[in-house]
Design a protein around this nucleic acid. Structure first.
Lengths: 152, 152
DNA sequence: TATTGTTATACTCTATAACTATA
DNA sequence: TATAGTTATAGAGTATAACAATA
């Protein structure tokens, strides 16, 4: 194994021993690679977060999509505006409660999403390649464990 | 072990199986906890990134601090302005090259930093408690491995 | 000419408050 | 009255371009 946190707890840690730094920069590196790979499809890594929730049926209103992703409902408006302009999603009124919108992937949107998800998955696989399959699964499980206790 | 990535690669992944989501939200949760714990000391988790680099002597100019942390040199100006206003760091001209500033912790700054670093470390330890000592070290090592290959 | 720190500026992401239409 | 979506607005964080001082 490579370097771990030094046992000397009194001295200043190196910046790359700090978990916050590691999480932030790992996220930035993965997002940059994903955005570069998705650019030809005209969607971003951030868009894909919302599209996954919509495609998987994890939410049935804008606010539920926002809540699942942990973003504000007002931020969701602009994000969906852009996806609607690209013809990837469509809003239609929910008949049982006309205050809500049902968000759906269009026919074209489903095609873009399928291709983008394969692309994003390939980027992710390459990103974690050095960890091996077990290491990558352990990384995911560890992060899921941290988030599970945060939610409580 | 808990849930891993589903072997069914064709269907949409759940949002919390996506590595980018996990990295981003783990970072946000840790940063929120750290900022809350550091608030009485009037420094943020972001400040601590710069202060660690300065305290450890990893950089000897503003631009080197910015480069190590991967932020723009223009962003470093405002960050150091705030820390200087709080009396935590001081800029002084570097005699061998008067274009540069040497950034130093003040006497008061060293005290704040020492206390803040202990606080941040305690928050981090509690954050990763569910992983056990080995699990936490493996998480750090995995993230360091991902970043090492990104830099190339 | 090139570099360090700085300022001005703009763009993105996010958050708060207020509005509208529905319930 | 409360809720879903929207708009306006402001605050962070970041990035680009241009400037002064220095090399």
């Amino acid at each position: 194994m490579s370097s771990q946190r030094p046992s000397d707890r009194g001295s200043p840690r190196r910046h790359d021993d700090v978990l916050g730094y590691l999480l932030k920069h790992a996220h930035m590196a993965l997002e940059a690679r994903t955005d570069a790979a998705l650019a030809p499809l005209r969607v971003t890594a951030r868009d894909m977060g919302a599209l996954r929730v919509i495609a998987a049926g994890e939410a049935r209103s804008q606010q539920e999509v926002a809540a699942v992703l942990g973003v504000d409902r007002t931020s969701m408006v602009a994000l969906l505006d852009a996806l609607e302009r690209e013809g990837i999603v469509a809003r239609r009124p929910f008949e049982q409660d006309r205050r809500r919108n049902v968000i759906e992937l269009t026919e074209a949107g489903r095609k873009v999403f399928t291709e983008a998800e394969q692309t994003a998955l390939a980027v992710e696989d390459e990103f974690v390649e050095s960890l091996g399959a077990d290491g990558a699964n352990e990384l995911r499980a560890a992060l899921q464990s941290l988030l599970a206790e945060t939610a409580q």
